[in-house]
């Protein structure tokens, strides 16, 4: 996608949505998953992903679990109960926004 600003505001929603479908995910896995799901159209930059994850964690929407994998530690993120509620509300917000944009982009005028 050419305009990265379009998804910048939706990054938190993307993260929350992905985590609502999986038990837990780590940062690198999220970047790869988005790449696969969007068929390479959307690339989450590392410089944007981690700040978003850390913000969501500080707000109590995510909790972490650390597991030793091979010879290193891996930090997994999981949705908290508060995070699950936030996901629902963020998705509703996004759907409303998409509907509004669709209405604006292809208006069906009724002049009666």
């Amino acid at each position: 996608m050419g305009n990265s600003k379009l998804y910048k505001g939706s990054l938190s929603t993307i993260i929350l949505k992905l985590l609502s479908e999986t038990e837990k995910m780590y940062g690198y896995e999220i970047t790869q998953k988005v790449k696969i799901l969007s068929h390479g159209e959307l690339t989450i930059t590392e410089g944007a992903l981690y700040p978003a994850l850390h913000k969501l964690e500080a707000e109590g929407f995510l909790e972490v679990e650390v597991v030793k994998v091979d010879n290193r530690f891996r930090k997994y993120y999981k949705l908290t109960e508060k995070g699950a509620t936030e996901t629902t509300s963020k998705l509703e917000e996004l759907n409303d926004y998409i509907k509004t944009m669709q209405a604006l982009m292809s208006p069906s005028f009724n002049l009666q």
Partner: peptide, 18 residues
């Protein structure tokens, strides 16, 4: 891939979050 500022954005935002 972290961009021209390297880890700086991640560090700054982590500090804010913490």
């Amino acid at each position: 891939k972290f961009g021209v500022f390297g880890f700086m954005d991640v560090v700054d935002n982590k500090l804010k979050a913490m």
